[in-house]
Design a protein around this nucleic acid. Structure first.
Length: 474
RNA sequence: GGCCCCAUCGUCUAGUGGCCUAGGACACCACCCUCUCAAGGUGGAGGCACGGGUUCGAAUCCCGUUGGGGCUACCA
């Protein structure tokens, strides 16, 4: 049970405890990075504790190896945590206890509705989508393998303290009977989240604005569990793309590790992220970590969303790069070069005759666009009547391929079959030329895997354009 | 649709009723410096979404309109 001295004693304000609670999705979102940064700055500024908790309750989706990606991204950014990582997957007992408390007090009830049934009823009702409380009074046995839902009050309002956006008020009637436990017995996000925040004595919940509407549910659960005084909230504005939509993996570059791989310095990344939604209140734009900590106040965080502008990030980055002592610059650029080279080296070892040849076998991985050997390109086009068709088919199959050597191999094979080329080699030559620019080089599949889907596809498309330009009509 | 939130140059922001002829940064343009390109320096263009109030005075307070975003899962 958390103890908050500040309110009751009124003299000693307890040191705040904050947390970052990412879920292992396979990459570390820049928005999560910024949330982590703000939590971290707040904790450091106030002499508080920064807790790392991995929210991996969804066993069907989370992969344990993804946790390492979270840790390494946090370390790269320089955001050291004081406690954790705590894994929710190892804290099941806590959630089960909380659930049985809720069952005993009658705060929750069992529900056997399927999603389809819920939607069906909503349609017939003609009203808003969402759960209608159908099972509330059916008295289903909560001991069964059924989903458990929280009995949300049907009237009244609920308000909570939010340091960045005033104190939002929600009408309780708008909050449906949300689920707290899956039918397989696993806790749902909101339950685990609340139980852990209480157990870890979190005093300030600093998270993205996308959680604002979860907060009433959070508060309801918190109260039902008898946890006492609610934490203070701070919902940070979201980071949007140029279209004004929240950054998503599907359309945008969002993974912290992608920025690292593209050659951004961690200190530049942190500096830029800090300035998204916050400013020290004066005209300073370039700030060292300790200067940011010194000036940081949650109350100064803006409540309007910000658009992520990579050009400005690049400007901040170039500033840091220029100001590096020469020896550091040498060291860090070498380190970056090496990280790209390491996975490639074993692939070219048995092909090069001199170390100098390493360069021409590897440059495709370093350049934005490959250096295309036009003599070889034309020769290959002449020899293969289906050159263009192969590129076309490869774009289609690679766009949806599983991104590993096996998946890429399958994609290229089926592309070859689709256009009816005699053997796999004929299907590969055009792809290799388009992607690597040369007829020889590292193994195609491995090279493509390393390059990544986006760059591979854009090179194939560039290849199609080149094909047209190279062969005027006739 | 319902609920919540937001609104200063293209973008990130300063601004919390008079210091605002709205400041800075990125991007853009011009010039200077310069063996090139950068970097650096100087200057320029560019904004308070709209309409009502409140006030001696509104970017700042209130209301409305418009526009935008988030949430609305047995994901987190």
């Amino acid at each position: 049970m958390p103890l908050r001295t500040g309110a009751s004693v009124g003299i000693v304000q307890a040191a705040p405890r904050v947390r970052i609670a990412p879920s292992p999705t396979g990459y570390f979102h820049v928005g999560t990075g910024r949330t982590a940064l703000f939590n971290w700055m707040f904790a450091r500024r106030e002499g508080g504790t920064f807790v790392l908790r991995i929210e991996d309750t969804d066993t069907a989706r989370n992969r344990p190896e993804h946790v390492e990606g979270i840790l390494s991204s946090l370390r790269w950014l320089g955001l050291d945590w004081d406690e954790g990582p705590y894994l929710q997957s190892e804290r099941g007992e806590l959630y089960r206890d909380a659930i049985s408390t809720l069952v005993q007090s009658g705060a929750v009830y069992a529900c056997d509705c399927t999603t389809a049934q819920i939607q069906q009823r909503a349609r017939e009702r003609g009203g808003p989508p969402g759960y209608d409380g159908f099972c509330r009074d059916r008295g289903l046995d909560p001991a069964e393998s059924l989903m458990l839902r929280f009995k949300t009050p049907r009237e009244g309002t609920l308000q909570f303290t939010d340091l960045v956006r005033g104190d939002p008020t929600f009408p309780l009637a708008a909050i449906e009977d949300f689920g707290v436990r899956k039918s397989n017995g696993e806790p749902l996000f909101i339950l685990a989240n609340v139980v852990d925040d209480a157990d870890m004595a979190i005093t300030h919940v600093v998270r993205g604005e996308d959680h604002t509407s979860n907060t009433p549910k959070y508060a309801l659960l918190w109260e039902a569990l008898g946890y006492g005084e609610l934490p203070v909230f701070a919902h940070l504005p979201l980071i949007n793309n140029a279209q004004g939509k929240k950054l998503s993996k599907r359309r945008d570059k969002v993974a912290v590790e992608d920025f690292r791989d593209d050659g951004y310095l961690a200190e530049a990344m942190v500096n830029y992220l800090a300035l998204l939604g916050w400013s020290p209140g004066d005209d300073r734009e370039i700030l060292a970590l300790d200067e940011m900590v010194e000036a940081f106040r949650l109350e100064d965080v803006k409540s309007a969303p910000a658009i992520f502008d990579e050009r400005k990030l690049a400007a901040v980055n170039s500033h840091y790069l220029r100001n590096l002592p020469e020896a550091d610059f040498v060291e860090r650029s070498q380190e970056w070069l090496r990280s790209r080279w390491a996975p490639l080296a074993p692939l070219v070892q048995e092909r090069v005759r001199t170390l100098a040849e390493v360069y021409t076998m590897a440059d495709f991985a370093y350049r934005g666009e490959p250096v295309v050997d036009l003599v070889e390109w034309r020769k290959a086009v002449r020899k293969n009547a289906k050159f263009g068709e192969v590129l076309e088919a490869a774009i289609e199959t690679l766009a949806v391929a599983t991104w590993d050597v096996e998946g890429i191999h399958q994609a290229l094979s089926s592309a070859g079959e689709k256009v009816g080329v005699a053997n796999l080699r004929d299907a590969q030559a055009p792809v290799r030329l388009a992607v690597m620019g040369r007829p020889v080089g590292p193994p195609l599949m491995e090279g493509i895997e390393l390059l990544g889907r986006d760059r591979t596809l854009s090179r194939l498309r560039a290849g199609q354009v080149r094909l047209h330009e190279e062969s005027p009509t006739g």
